[in-house]
């Protein structure tokens, strides 16, 4: 045990102490962080997860801007009570194209990881305008200002940036980003529209009741309506996603 008796020499020498701290942090990082990028089981192999459509991505940016994550999580933990209430627990794969992810840690409101399709567009708009119109006991603030027109000038840049960090947007998708964005909020072709084909399971149509303007409301509701709907869990082999 003589080695432990000499620890005072390391602790009283700034150089050795700094080297020691550096080594400790490096080892910690190598063991705890690096494997997340190399272990294949970190992100489950499931079908259906796709990059967000331009309108959904714009809505996601509004979700972040308005601080929705301060009260709503997007992370159904593998606990019985959560699965009973919200549906299948969240997979890492489901937020692999989220930059940054919106798992959040506080639930003043309910979890939103699988809110897509749970309510109608009409309900979402009404609820965002004034939550107490539909849920009298709600403490959520109203967001009527979302009815203003969506700033579409940044969408191509946004998607291009996301591609740099690894979201697999195709050249085709980037080229059509603006057209897709408008189409998703205005088309009446439903599943036959080009946008629904480019982004499967995207909810299309006029969301906010005003087909003339692509509003921030359109974008946010389009985002909410796709949350948690991309993976079809009836086709997932559950032994393969067990951790």
């Amino acid at each position: 045990m003589s080695i432990f008796k000499h620890h005072a020499k390391v602790e009283t020498n700034v150089f050795f102490l700094a080297v020691g701290i550096l080594l400790t942090v490096i080892v910690g990082g190598l063991v705890e962080v690096v494997p997340l990028f190399t272990i294949e089981s970190t992100i489950e192999k499931v079908d259906g997860v796709r990059p967000y459509s331009p309108l959904e991505q714009a809505g996601r940016d509004i979700y972040v801007r308005e601080g929705c994550y301060n009260c709503h999580s997007q992370m159904i933990r593998p606990f019985k009570d959560e699965v009973e209430r919200y549906g299948h627990y969240s997979l890492a794969a489901e937020s692999k194209y989220d930059h940054p992810f919106q798992w959040a840690s506080k639930r003043t409101g309910p979890d939103l990881a699988r809110v897509g399709g749970k309510y109608t567009n009409d309900w979402q708009v009404r609820h965002l305008m004034n939550p107490r119109d539909v849920v009298p006991e709600s403490v959520m603030p109203g967001y009527p200002h979302l009815m203003r027109a969506l700033d579409q000038s940044t969408i191509v840049g946004n998607l291009t940036t996301l591609r740099i960090v690894g979201v697999p947007y195709t050249d085709e998708q980037l080229k059509n980003a603006k057209a897709h964005l408008v189409e998703q909020a205005t088309t009446t072709a439903g599943a036959e529209s080009a946008i629904a084909k480019a982004y499967p399971k995207a909810v299309v149509g006029d969301f906010d009741g005003n087909p003339q303007v692509v509003s921030e409301m359109d974008a946010l509701v389009a985002f909410l309506q796709v949350l948690g709907t991309m993976v079809d869990f009836t086709t997932v082999d559950h032994t393969k996603i067990q951790r």
Partner: peptide, 15 residues
């Protein structure tokens, strides 16, 4: 991959 451990614990399996 990662070591599974002798007790075979899995939070998703438990669920």
């Amino acid at each position: 991959d990662y070591s599974r451990g002798m007790m075979g614990y899995s939070s998703r399996g438990d669920l």
